[in-house]
């Protein structure tokens, strides 16, 4: 069972968390001004990278706060977690390689 570091509560067991899907996808400010294609893109199209993904997690059985995490989809390794609203952090090559290991 994975350990996940909630930015507010610290490291806790995976079962306390709920995955919230890909991160950094902002809801359009004025949805009605979007074309059908743009809206479908926002609604349904998600990355499915083999490697690092930025995704949302919620500490469902803890503080109930959403936060973002960088995880390698091949190894399930978490590189880091960070608060909502912060931009996706840049990861150096060494860290990425460690996560892929």
């Amino acid at each position: 069972m994975l350990l996940i570091r909630c930015p507010y509560c610290g490291e806790r067991s995976e079962i306390e968390f709920a995955n919230g899907g890909e991160a950094h996808i902002a809801r359009p400010a004025d949805p009605m001004s979007r074309t059908d294609e743009e809206w479908a893109q926002y609604l349904y199209m998600r990355d499915n990278p083999k490697g690092l993904i930025a995704e949302r997690w919620r500490h469902a059985h803890g503080c109930n706060r959403f936060f973002n995490a960088l995880r390698d989809t091949r190894t399930d390794r978490f590189v880091m977690t960070y608060e909502m609203g912060r931009p996706r952090p840049e990861i150096d090559a060494a860290t990425a390689a460690e996560a892929a290991r």
């Binding site: 902002a26 919620r58 959403f66």
Partner: peptide, 13 residues
Amino acid sequence: LALMEDYLQTEWP
């Protein structure tokens, strides 16, 4: 509740 929290925390803080 989770859906409400989602929008409140992540879209309309």
